[in-house]
């Protein structure tokens, strides 16, 4: 069957890049969830991962480096009927956009944030990213990265993010399952996707991940925040995948629209004379 999200385009990714798998998983997920392309808005930033919206049929806001989350928040707020996904790489979401990432969790907008996390800068050619391991050597980090890596899952759980998960680009089927739950989850849903960079990251390869990755099993309780935090610290010999944490709480949009008697922020004509008369009384 044809996927309505398919779009033929000249894709600018390197052959073998993990981005292809994430694109495939995303298109299948949206199609299997029975969404139509016009219902979905994909917001991205800058970087190789951020080109993804150009490779499928959806509404697109390909904005600035690091700034996809504020845009996604506002699109969802203006028109809550839209399915809004912010998608970009680790440098974009956790580096340039780190401040927005942290504060969006506090707002709990009903958006999904998908991060292609390959622990390296691709488009600028191989520098360390916020998630690179300490000691990661590059043309810039010639002495090895001297900074500790950013742990997006721990930060999200510490901030009580509504939905926190990790997927792997080497397993499309499982990634689809996670994406389905994330996209249909009401509230801020983070999916950090481990994605090998075949050109610039010679350490965190498909094999490296396959040797270490395992899925959280059915015994694991994603409602337990402290356990989830503990799990999010696990990295190295063993790397857990799956849904780490879930906490259903009112979304920003649910809270806002419960307080005002309007369904959206779209075109609204105000009767100028009437509003003026009413408002001027406050200035008497």
């Amino acid at each position: 069957m044809d996927n309505p999200f398919d779009l033929s385009s000249d894709i600018a990714w390197c052959p073998g890049c993990g981005n292809f798998a994430i694109l495939k998983a995303l298109k299948s997920t949206l199609s299997e969830l029975n969404y139509e392309p016009h219902e979905v808005v994909l917001v991205s930033g800058i970087g190789q991962a951020a080109k993804i919206p150009h490779y499928l049929r959806v509404n697109v806001f390909n904005g600035l480096h690091g700034r996809s989350i504020p845009v996604a928040f506002a699109v969802k707020s203006a028109n809550p009927r839209l399915v809004v996904i912010a998608e970009s790489g680790d440098g974009c979401m956790y580096g340039e956009g780190g401040n927005h990432f942290v504060h969006a969790i506090r707002r709990n907008p009903d958006i999904t944030v998908i991060v292609h996390n390959n622990q390296v800068y691709g488009l600028t050619k191989g520098q360390a990213s916020p998630t690179s391991e300490e000691g990661f050597v590059s043309k810039v980090q010639t002495l090895g990265s001297l900074s500790a890596p950013f742990n997006p899952l721990s930060i999200a759980i510490a901030q009580d993010a509504s939905f926190v998960a990790r997927g792997f680009a080497g397993d499309i089927e499982k990634l689809k399952e996670i994406l389905k739950q994330a996209i249909t989850w009401p509230g801020f849903a983070l999916v950090d996707v481990l994605q090998p960079c075949v050109t610039f990251n010679r350490v965190n390869t498909y094999t490296w991940y396959r040797e270490r990755a395992y899925y959280l099993d059915v015994q694991y309780d994603p409602e337990d925040r402290v356990k989830a935090f503990e799990k999010s610290l696990e990295w190295g010999e063993k790397i857990p995948l799956g849904i780490f944490y879930r906490h259903r709480k009112p979304t920003y949009q649910e809270k806002f629209y419960a307080l005002v008697s309007y369904p959206h922020l779209l075109y609204r004509e105000r009767a100028v004379e009437e509003v003026l008369d009413r408002e001027l009384q406050y200035f008497q």
Partner: peptide
């Protein structure tokens, strides 16, 4: 959280029709 977010939010809202 900052003016960068402020303008990007306003642009997102405008794009969506506000």
């Amino acid at each position: 959280e900052d003016e960068i977010a402020a303008i990007n939010m306003a642009l997102g809202a405008s794009y969506a029709g506000a």
